[in-house]
Amino acid sequence: MKRLKTSKYFEIIKVIFKEATAYRLDALMLLASSIVFLLLYYFVWLAIDQSGEIPGGFQQVITYIVAGQIVSNAAFTQTETFIGDRVRRGTIVNELKRPISLMTYTYFHELAWALFNFIAKAVPIAIIGIIFLGIDTPNLVNTFFFVLSVFLAFNVVFLFAYSTAMLVFWTKVDWSIRMMRNTVQNLFSGVLFPLYLLPDTLNTVFNLLPFQVMADAPIQIFTMSATGSEIYFILGKQIIWIVILYFVAFFAWKKARTKLTVQGG
């Protein structure tokens, strides 16, 4: 019985993986976009380094930025699109007929995409960063915990994005909601600007937000600025946010579901 249950989820992942390979061109373009992003900020930070003094030096900033791209390419899902497509076409009804809940199904759909993106985008970016940008690499222990932390970050992003995706039941449009979340998320998580360079008061504020554990947390493990027990503290903080956001997502879905019944009438 237990075996059968897990194989159900495994099947979803297998199917999505096939789906993902059909979008190879998209993946390639997104990888190229990511490389363009790295190139741009490589030169911007290089220029900043030449004009002033960056605390910790240029090497640390560029390692942080590359790690940010690794994390965001693997863990940042676009759940609004998944839900939005189905709400607009009305096929969301089909998802509700499945023997698993909408949240579980969406979760495995996004997890499969994250796995695909990890292999197709995050790993190539890591290699490019190491070979061409000469970034620092973490030791074996930190590499292991980095991957684990990226997985936890994926869960945080998923639950957050799933909550905002529920808004689509009211708005019927998803691109603007997705864009708003991505905009806020990219700045507050550290993907755009290394959080350790923030002024102290801002840093405190950013650290209280869920976005910090979406990227900055795993990045700290990658850059080796967190070691030993600090790593457990980071993982613990991620888990706390997963629990909190699980309840948010759960109640958002409960609200959205009543809205859906009205729609179906």
Binding site: V44, A47, I48, Q50, S51, G52, I54, M179, M180, T183, V184, N186, L187, L192, F193, L197, L198, P199
Partner: peptide, 21 residues
């Protein structure tokens, strides 16, 4: 929001330097 955040980002960049080139 996108534009406001990109300005916020620029402001953060300029907490590190006074001028770029």
């Amino acid at each position: 929001i996108h534009l406001v955040f990109s300005l916020a980002f620029l402001t953060l960049i300029f907490t590190q330097v006074e001028s770029i080139q």
